[in-house]
Structures are given as C-alpha cells and as structure tokens.
Amino acid sequence: MSAEKEIVNFWYNKKGLFTINNIKTSSNRDCGILALKFDKDKVNEVFHIEVSCSITNNISETTKLDKSISRIVDEKFENKNIKNTISSHIKQFSMQKQKIKKIMILGAVPKSRKNEIINKFDEKEVKVIEFENILYDVLDQLDTQYFKNDIIRTLQLTKFLLLSEPTKLAKLLVNDSFSSNSRKEFLSSILEKDEIMKDFKKTNTERLGAILKNSGLKPAELAEMIEHNILNKRTRRLFLDSLMEQQKTRKTTNKTKRVKKLNIPLEKFF
C-alpha cells in the first residue's frame, strides 16, 4: 500500500474497525480499503474508502468541478467490477442488510473551495474526510511503543525526535515549503492557545519589545491595544505613573547632559 493508505488504514484500525486492504478486481484494479464495524459477531457498518492524496495537484484546480467529481465517483465507487468485488468480500461476514457507506479521503483541499467540494461529493452520497485531519489524529495519538509498520514508525520518529526539538521545528517553518501566509496562520493559531500565552510570562522584555517593534503596529494602534487589551483599572494608573516617571527621568538626564556640555573646561578647546 501507499504511505497515505497505510496511515488511513492504521487510523481506522485505531478507531476499532476491521479493515481489508489490497482488494483487487479480476482485472487487477485497486478497490481501496474496506472497513467494517462490528457489533459483537455481526457487522454493523461497512465503509468503502478511497484515498486520493496529492501534494502538488488537487481536485480544486479543475474548472468543471461537478463533472470531475462525477467522474471520480463513477470510477472509484460506481464501477461495476469494483462494486462486485466489494460485495464478494463482505459476503463472508454476518451483517445486517444495509447500504455501504462511501468515504473519499482527500489531500490538499483548499479552503477557498472546501465547502463546494464537500457538498458536491455529498450530493453523490460520498463523505469527504481530509487526509490532514487523519494525519493529525494519528500523530497526536502516537505513543512511544515500538511499531513494526515502517510508515507509522517513521511518523513516530518524526513526532518524538524532530517535532519535539523547538529549534529544528522553527527552521522547518521558515523554509521555502511554507508561504508567508502559512507562517502567519501558524503564528495566529499558536497564539490562540492559552498554554502558549502563559509561556509569554517567561519571555524577557527585550524579546517582547522586538516582537512589537516588528509587528508593524502604529503608535496609535499600540496605545489602543495597551488601553483596551492589556490594562485594567488597577494596572492603568500604575502604568501611567511608571510612564510619567520614566519621562521625568529622561528629561532630567537630558538636562544633566546639556549642563555637562556647558561646563566643559576651557583647556578642552585648546
């Protein structure tokens, strides 16, 4: 199986479903994955799962979306040979007579057309699941036990040896694989987490100052942010007192410097 199918297969297994993969028609055509959910000794639900996960190309690039989706559904789910092969595989199980649920796993679904794509598949009675969500679930639930499956073992190594290293993770996020918008979205998402915001208490003032300096905020926007999002009734007065004190100190320092300049001994000029 391909790497993406291995991951999908593992995900369904972890959800408690029995899977049959490497299903081929009489003409050696791939039939995807068959997942069965048991209720005691009977099959309660049957899922016919197809995986289409491309990194560079995706279904959204077509101008005739409805026609493309119809073609995919016909080829993957409605093909006579595929339907007969799937039926022959589930005959061996004791099951309630019901419709097989069709699942399409898609990779690289753009946000701009996500709802449109999902709705078009839904009209054909095919449920869409984004591969990135499955990949996230698998990574998130992986523990440190040893996995014999090479694909899952690779994900495990990536999670515990690479993603656990902050400096290497940071380098990954600034390479050419991530666009400027992706990095902005990442930072926005991570700053929404309460745990991350708590860690900012440990950040020194110089670093916080650099973040604000490079944020592009105008003075008026910075003042408004401090007023409405940071200060409260108790801290507002303390902030203003501190600001006035620093302003007063700066004026005194500047005045002292001017006095020193005026009191330069005459010999310094000769």
Rank of each mutant, 00 (worst) to 15 (best):
V174C: 07
K184H: 10
I152N: 02
A170M: 15
Q156E: 02
D150E: 10
N175R: 12
L161K: 14
K171C: 09
F178K: 07
L162E: 01
K168M: 04
S180T: 13
L169M: 15
N181Q: 15
A170L: 15
R153N: 03
P166G: 08
F160K: 07
A170I: 12
L163D: 12
P166N: 10
S182E: 11
L155K: 03
S179A: 09
L172T: 05
S179P: 11
L163R: 13
T154P: 06
E165H: 15
N149F: 03
N175G: 05
K148D: 13
F178C: 04
I151G: 00
D176P: 06
L157T: 00
L162S: 08
Q156H: 00
K171M: 07
L163H: 14
P166R: 12
K168W: 00
R153M: 04
K184L: 05
F178W: 07
I151F: 04
R183Q: 13
L157N: 02
S164L: 12
L169F: 13
K159M: 09
S182G: 13
L155H: 02
T154K: 12
E185F: 13
K171D: 05
L161I: 02
D150G: 11
T154Q: 11
F147R: 09
L162P: 06
Q156S: 06
S164M: 12
T167L: 13
T154H: 11
S179N: 10
I151H: 04
I151Y: 01
S179Y: 03
Q156R: 00
S177V: 01
R183F: 09
E165Q: 15
E165I: 12
N181I: 13
S177R: 12
R183K: 14
D150C: 09
A170S: 15
F147D: 01
L173I: 00
S177T: 00
I151T: 01
L155W: 00
N181S: 15
F160A: 10
T154F: 07
L172A: 10
I151P: 03
I152K: 04
S177P: 02
S180F: 12
L155I: 02
L157G: 02
S164A: 15
F178I: 03
L162W: 03
Q156F: 00
Q156Y: 03
K159Q: 10
S179E: 03
F147E: 06
N149S: 05
L155C: 03
E185H: 15
D150I: 01
S179D: 04
D176T: 07
S179H: 11
Q156P: 01
L162T: 02
F178Q: 06
K184A: 07
R183M: 11
T167D: 10
I152Q: 01
S182T: 07
N181L: 15
F178L: 08
D176E: 09
D150T: 10
I152Y: 01
N175L: 06
E185A: 15
K148W: 06
T158L: 13
S177H: 09
E165R: 15
F178M: 08
I152T: 00
K148I: 05
L155M: 07
I151A: 02
L163I: 07
L173Y: 03
R153F: 04
S180R: 14
T167I: 13
K184M: 05
L162M: 06
